[in-house]
Design a protein around this nucleic acid. Structure first.
Lengths: 146, 146
DNA sequence: CTCATGTCAGAACGACTGAGATGG
DNA sequence: CCCATCTCAGTCTTTCTGACATGA
């Protein structure tokens, strides 16, 4: 993508810059996920399960921001590849309890490393201090505390 | 969207933060474009024409980052609403010369105002200094000089 | 009855691909 | 002949909507 010659109106507009930067970020991480035969959203699901333990699909939707109907599909795939397990919650039989398998945990560690390298690549034009600052500002914008 | 309870792995990952922030930015500006019956990409086209004067569609694609085949459609619509004019370039008859009409220039000023308000809303959690810093960091990330 | 949860099919959208027509 | 430009049709992806079944 050519952005170097963009009009000032665009290149000084935060919403446009965020969209361009997100596109660059997607390109940077796509290679990782493609190589692993895995999808971004699946990584989000694995991350949520690793941090919070077994969760219902509704809780997974809340934690990841994924649409509930999409959680169905990603969990289907992750269950198919053995990275998570789906079980009925005995205490509330509407719910599925999704839990991480050892294989899922391994895959997550794999992805951590490779994603870290992708971040370095994406953020290459920035100094270490600037990277931290950008991260902090984005967290602030999204009202997320780190 | 619920991001407040996202796993640390996600909420400290710049590529994820950029995607979430871009989604928030799209939501903030969608209201403006919808109300004006106009699309983001049309704004980008108008902005490029206003800053650089009449351009071929290929040049518009370069300036805006839009796909050439999408430029066709947006210019179609903008010509239909009278905001731009399409003329054959006499010096190279493969090319269309797209130029902004007075009506297009007016619309652009309209959008400037309303988009500015949308930015304020989007960036509300940040101080003025932080907003400038975020803008500068994103420009740096995209290797854009302001 | 109501609400929450999970499931499914498909709509809507945006970004892109490939092929063809025209002309330099 | 090769390349640039524009156009069109259609794919691919992601996200979301609406309807439904099950169960609290």
């Amino acid at each position: 993508m050519r952005v170097h010659g963009a009009p000032r109106r665009l290149r000084s507009l935060p919403s446009w810059l965020l969209n361009q930067a997100a596109a660059a970020a997607s390109r940077a991480t796509a290679a990782v996920f493609d190589a692993e035969g895995m999808h971004r959203s699946q990584f989000a699901v694995l991350a949520a399960l690793d941090e919070f333990g077994p969760l219902s699909q509704a809780a997974l939707s809340d934690r990841t921001g994924l649409d509930p109907s999409d959680v169905v599909r990603w969990v289907d795939e992750l269950a198919g590849t053995g990275h998570v397990e789906r079980a009925r919650d005995p205490s509330d039989r509407r719910r599925n309890v999704i839990s991480l398998t050892d294989s899922g945990r391994e895959r997550l560690r794999d992805l951590d490393e490779k994603l870290e390298r992708a971040q370095q690549e994406l953020l290459a034009p920035l100094t270490a201090a600037q990277r931290d600052e950008l991260t902090a500002l984005l967290q602030g914008l999204l009202a997320i505390a780190d």
